[in-house]
Simulated scan of single mutants.
Amino acid sequence: MPLTTTEVASSQRERENMTSTINPIVNHTLRANGIRQHYLDSGSGPVVVLLHGFPETSFAWRFQIPVLANKFRVIAPDLRGYGETDKPASGYDKRNMAQDLIALLDELGIDKIALIGHDRGARVATRFAKDHPQRLDRLVVMDNVPTRVVAQNMNAQTARAYWFFLFHLVPDLPEALINGKEAEWLHYFFADWCYNPHAIEGTDFDTYVKAYKCPGAVRGAMSDYRANAEDVKQDLVDADTKIACPTMAIWGEDFYTVGGMFDMRTVWEGMATHLRAEPIAQCGHLPQEEQPERVNTLLLDFLGTWKG
Rank of each mutant, 00 (worst) to 15 (best):
F72A: 02
D78A: 08
T85C: 10
L51T: 01
D111G: 13
R120M: 15
F72R: 00
V124C: 00
G53V: 07
L105F: 09
L50G: 00
F72K: 01
S58R: 08
F54R: 08
A125I: 00
K87S: 05
L115F: 02
K112H: 15
F59E: 13
F59W: 15
W61S: 03
H52C: 13
G121H: 02
P55L: 13
I65A: 08
M97S: 01
A98W: 02
I102H: 02
E107D: 15
D119H: 10
G81C: 09
D93S: 05
L115I: 05
D86M: 06
I65T: 08
R73E: 04
A60E: 14
K94R: 11
R73G: 03
R80V: 04
K94V: 06
G91S: 03
W61H: 10
P88Q: 09
L51K: 00
L68A: 09
P66V: 09
G117H: 00
Y92T: 03
E107R: 14
L101F: 12
D93F: 00
P88W: 05
R120F: 11
T57P: 07
Q64I: 14
R73D: 03
R120S: 05
L104C: 05
F59C: 06
G53Y: 03
L79H: 08
T85H: 06
F54L: 15
D119Y: 06
T57F: 12
G121W: 03
R95V: 12
H118N: 13
D100A: 02
A60V: 11
D106K: 14
L101K: 02
A98Q: 04
N96M: 03
I113V: 14
F63K: 14
R95F: 12
P55Y: 15
G81A: 10
I75H: 01
A114V: 02
A60P: 05
G53I: 04
K112R: 15
L101E: 05
E84Q: 14
P88H: 09
G117R: 01
A122L: 04
D106H: 12
F63C: 12
L50Y: 02
